[in-house]
Write a protein that binds this DNA or RNA. Structure first.
Lengths: 174, 174
DNA sequence: AAACATACCATCCGAAACAGACTGTTGTCA
DNA sequence: TGACAACAGTCTGTTTCGGATGGTATGTTT
């Protein structure tokens, strides 16, 4: 019955969110959870959060229950298979390639004026940093550890990026 | 005649490579250039480097000349329109969202064991850093500035990331 | 009660990107 | 000349992206 599908990062986001927050959720719920959490550093179009759970359900990683009346929303929850898949993904190390795609970096590469570029970048990244630090402030140790750790890396990245652009912003020697 | 198309980062990579290295290049050339330079931090399937120039040529950003004999390769070069498009992209600041997609970060977020994760990450990132530093070593100031600057940011990112995972690797207090 | 406003919720579609299998061509050196 | 590496390009099935669009429930005003 379950089709063979291959699980992508998107899949694991769905599985992960379901395991982390609740037993059961609608795509709309997932949308909210995602954008409030993992969506900070891993965005996806919300339409994916409708398509992906359906796909996972077909393959047996989730169960799908439709509300019998009203909006007839679809409620998804993890099956044992889903739970296992998540656990094994979490446990395995595969040298998965990460992607850093920053248009600003591309512009810099191709010769854009660094000082000018830096202005914009600083605004963006400083703002992001403030956001992150706000998060970090009101989550001192409670709740699951993972998000907090991920946040720390985010903060470091932002700080480093800001340092870099600050250097670029003042046009003295290299 | 020129269709209206929207220019994506892929487009600008093609335009940028053409402006940076040569007057004229075949997709195959572009492939080589890309993987040796910008491909370090912005990968794309090589088939894109065949499809994209064709698209750009149709829209008037490039001219397409076919070799009259032999392999009859297609040679592309920038038109005035292409040159302008590139220049204006380089000059404009738009708060373009950058993407950092690191499966390891996702795993950390969803509760993977940090110490264990760190092992793998350290190998990967240390290797990347060595690579970058090798590049940096044999390019002290000659040639265009952009690539060098971009490389510096890359190096910083790697260093920071390594620091982070080193902390995760030793399991003392947070 | 009718009209309106606003969340809330979901689907759909074209365009682009992806991944990689597959084919063909030229040069070179035994 | 024939074997082999390097060169060069094409094609195709999936995924993903990014929105446009369109419904439905729940108030809120008149």
């Amino acid at each position: 019955m379950p089709d063979e599908i291959q699980l992508t990062p998107t899949s694991y986001i769905v599985l992960g969110l379901l395991s982390m927050f609740v037993g059961e959720a609608t795509p709309y719920d997932l949308k909210g959870m995602a954008s409030a959490s993992v969506g900070q550093f891993w965005t996806l179009p919300h339409s994916q959060l409708y398509a992906e759970p359906a796909r996972l359900a077909r393959a047996g990683y989730l169960t799908e229950n439709q509300e019998p009346s009203g909006r007839r929303r679809k409620l998804y929850s993890l099956t044992e298979l889903g739970r296992e898949a998540l656990a094994s993904w979490l446990g395995v190390f595969t040298p998965e390639p990460y992607v850093l795609r920053d248009p600003a970096l591309l512009k810099l590469f191709f010769g854009a004026d660094a000082t000018h570029l830096a202005e914009g970048q600083l605004t963006t990244h400083r703002q992001k940093l403030v956001e992150y630090e706000a998060y970090a402030a009101h989550d001192p140790g409670t709740g699951p550890r993972g998000p907090w750790q991920a946040l720390q890396l985010g903060i470091r990245h932002e700080r480093e990026t800001i340092d870099f652009w600050e250097e670029q912003a003042r046009p003295n020697g290299r």
